[in-house]
């Protein structure tokens, strides 16, 4: 068992007091490795909460730099960070909250050529991406690598999320076979998004990661949780792992990772 320092006992006391987390759960958190794809609206709150929780190793992937239009919802970034790499900006805040955690930054755009290498070795993945091709790529890579992950998406006042345990529960492709055609669904940049909705959804994803690591409660598997912040109505849609799934079914037709159009790969 880890010998907690006095400061760690105080820092993590509210976790240790929880019957479902306790000393053993906090030890698991300190030994866990979680990677967050996207240091934006969803990735920001997820990164801050996972760092605060003492998740021992946190990876964060993003190729962008902070822009002033991000600051309305991407709460890991401050006005002074405009122009800085998002991964570096987020890492600085995570370290400032909790120097116990090791942050690994990946200033890259995820694509078929690099995703396996980046995600391999992590215990859980948080999908905080802003486009469908990358969401499908994360799903496919997590199924191939057998890494549980949290899918998340937001637009306008709406959010949706589900947790996938590959091989055991419905994957993203069990319900959504392939990305919608380009421009069929507007992006946040086109349609707008209420800033706090990003915090709501990213925080649910962080909670799922913490539950997976500690074993507390039940994961949001085989369920798509959706909400509309205009009415604060939450809905749970039951999903099933599909025999006909082209990825995780018994007769898969997707057997390797591929970039869908519009996923620009910038690997050198």
């Amino acid at each position: 068992m880890i010998d907690f320092t006095e400061e760690q006992l105080e820092r993590y006391s509210r976790h240790i007091l929880l019957d479902d987390v306790g000393v053993a759960g906090q030890e698991k958190l300190l030994q866990a490795k979680v990677i967050i794809v996207g240091a934006g609206g969803l990735g920001s709150p997820a990164a801050l909460y996972l760092a605060a929780a003492g998740v021992g190793t946190i990876g964060i992937v993003d190729s962008d730099v902070v822009e002033v239009s991000n600051l309305q919802r991407q709460i890991a970034h401050f006005s002074a960070d405009i122009g800085a790499a998002k991964v570096e900006s987020a890492a600085a805040k995570m370290q400032a909250i909790n120097p116990d955690v090791e942050v690994r930054t990946y200033r890259e755009y995820l694509c078929a050529a690099n995703i396996r290498k980046i995600l391999a070795g992590y215990d859980f993945v948080i999908d905080g991406t802003d486009n469908f091709p990358t969401k499908f790529l994360v799903n496919d890579a997590c199924v191939f690598l057998n890494i549980p992950f949290s899918h998340g998406g937001i637009l306008r006042f709406n959010g949706q999320t589900m947790t996938v345990v590959p091989g055991q529960t419905a994957c993203y492709r069990c319900s959504f076979r392939s990305p919608p055609p380009p421009d069929a669904v507007p992006s946040c940049a086109q349609a707008g998004v209420l800033g706090a909705v990003a915090g709501m959804l990213g925080t649910i994803q962080a909670a799922e990661a913490l539950k997976h690591i500690t074993g507390a409660g039940e994961l949001l598997t085989n369920t798509l949780l959706t909400f509309d912040a205009r009415t604060m109505a939450f809905r749970r849609i039951r999903l099933k792992k599909q025999e006909s799934c082209p990825l995780c079914g018994p007769h898969p037709v997707i057997t390797e990772l591929a970039d869908v159009e519009r996923t620009v790969c910038t690997v050198q």
Binding site: L9, E10, S13, L17, G22, A24
Partner: peptide, 14 residues
Amino acid sequence: CPMNLVKTKVAFAK
């Protein structure tokens, strides 16, 4: 409270 309970739980864990 609550550090006395935290320390009690750490003792039990060992």
